[in-house]
Computed example of a mutant assay.
Amino acid sequence: MRQPNLTDVVLFAAVVDAGGFRAAAQKRGLSASSLSDCVRRLESDVGLRLLNRTTRCVTPTAAGERLLERLRPALREIDAAFNDLDDEAQRPVGTLKLNVPVPVARFLLPDLLARFLRLYPGVNVEVVMDNTFIDVIAGGYDAGVRYEESLAKDMIAVPIGPRRQRFVAAAAPSYLAACGTPGHPEELVGHQLLGHRFESGKVGVFEFEKEGRILRIPPQGQLLTSSHDLKIRSAINGLGIVYTFEDFLREPLADGRLVPILQDWWQAFDGPYLYYHGRRHMPSPLRAFVDFLKAQATEEGWPPCRARSVPQASR
């Protein structure tokens, strides 16, 4: 017996359910002759007559009845599977796994995900914080968020969050009273600069920019840490100068625990991008999230822009 064609099997069941070729053809949008050809091919494949054909009606033979009895549960499962796909397209379900840097997880995602998850109650989100650039697919993630432009050609990048961000330099009033307030980045030499070491082992550089001129100052001081919280608390306690994402310093600057310095040299850079593989099936939770971000970009009126490398101090 040859392996039957699944389409022929489905159409055979449709003919029996409709009680004839003409009625089944009308429901399926096919010709009665093409349906008849499909059934004949199925009968040839199984080596048995499956339908009794008369001028008045079409009924299954005993073999046809037995076959349909076994096939109907499978056919219902197939139909349900495709219906589920359609439902998934309309109401995404499943888990969205994201790999994001610390600033994005702390300051951008909370409000963003609150709106997104209320729209899609069938979606769960798993977020892992990681400041290194990784292969999201190899890591088992659906997508990542990064600032750098070093994306593979088969990756797609979508803006997420504010399109311009900047680094802010600040120190506690007690530190500036004791050590002086630098008026130029070159005057940072000799100051206590609170350094940041990244997961890669690299130490961030204080990178300033003004009118196209870039100055890079390696941090020198008593404290080097991978903890943003420790670095900021140490600055508040008067241990040195901190240079980091503006969001990290917004509250202590607002309440006076820290004082901004070198404002003319603060370096701005493009906001983060969601990136994902462009050559694989997009799971429905990821598709929903991408559509959500694109709608937000339209609402905010964000101009299209290319990602570029974020300053050295953030890497």
Rank of each mutant, 00 (worst) to 15 (best):
A32R: 07
F269R: 03
P4F: 01
R41C: 03
F292V: 05
D86H: 15
Q263A: 14
V93F: 10
L75K: 00
R56Y: 15
V242P: 00
G161L: 02
G29M: 04
L30A: 08
E207C: 02
E211A: 08
K294W: 14
A89M: 12
N52E: 13
P185T: 01
R216K: 14
L113F: 01
E300R: 13
A138F: 13
C179F: 15
F289D: 01
L30R: 11
L42N: 01
R53I: 09
W265H: 02
A152V: 12
C57L: 13
E69F: 11
L113C: 04
A32L: 06
R257L: 06
I214N: 08
A297N: 15
D154I: 09
E126R: 15
S309A: 14
V136F: 14
E43T: 10
A152F: 09
G204W: 00
G19C: 06
G139T: 09
I232E: 07
R91G: 14
V242T: 08
T132D: 15
P182L: 05
P60K: 02
R146A: 14
A62D: 11
L258D: 00
L230W: 12
G278L: 01
A62G: 08
G204R: 03
A288K: 04
R166W: 11
A63K: 06
N52F: 07
D87C: 11
P103E: 02
G19T: 02
V242R: 03
S200P: 03
R40Q: 14
P303M: 11
K294C: 14
V39L: 04
V100K: 00
D291F: 09
D8W: 00
L35E: 00
L48G: 07
L215K: 04
T55R: 15
S309G: 14
E186P: 05
F21Y: 05
A177N: 10
E88Q: 12
F116I: 03
N124R: 14
L98N: 00
C179I: 10
P73M: 06
G212E: 04
V205W: 03
A80I: 08
A81Y: 02
H196K: 12
E246A: 03
R279I: 04
G47V: 08
V168E: 00
V259A: 06
G144I: 02
R115Y: 06
R56P: 06
R56C: 11
V16P: 00
L109K: 03
L117M: 07
P103I: 02
A62S: 09
L109C: 04
G144P: 04
R2W: 12
K231H: 09
R106C: 05
L293Q: 14
V189H: 15
R28C: 11
E186F: 09
E148T: 09
A313C: 12
G180E: 05
E211K: 13
V46T: 05
P285M: 00
E246Y: 04
R115N: 07
L48T: 11
D264R: 12
G139S: 13
V145P: 05
D264G: 10
G212L: 01
S44M: 15
T61V: 03
I137V: 14
Q222I: 10
D135A: 07
P182K: 05
T55E: 13
D87P: 07
A143T: 08
V123T: 01
H196I: 09
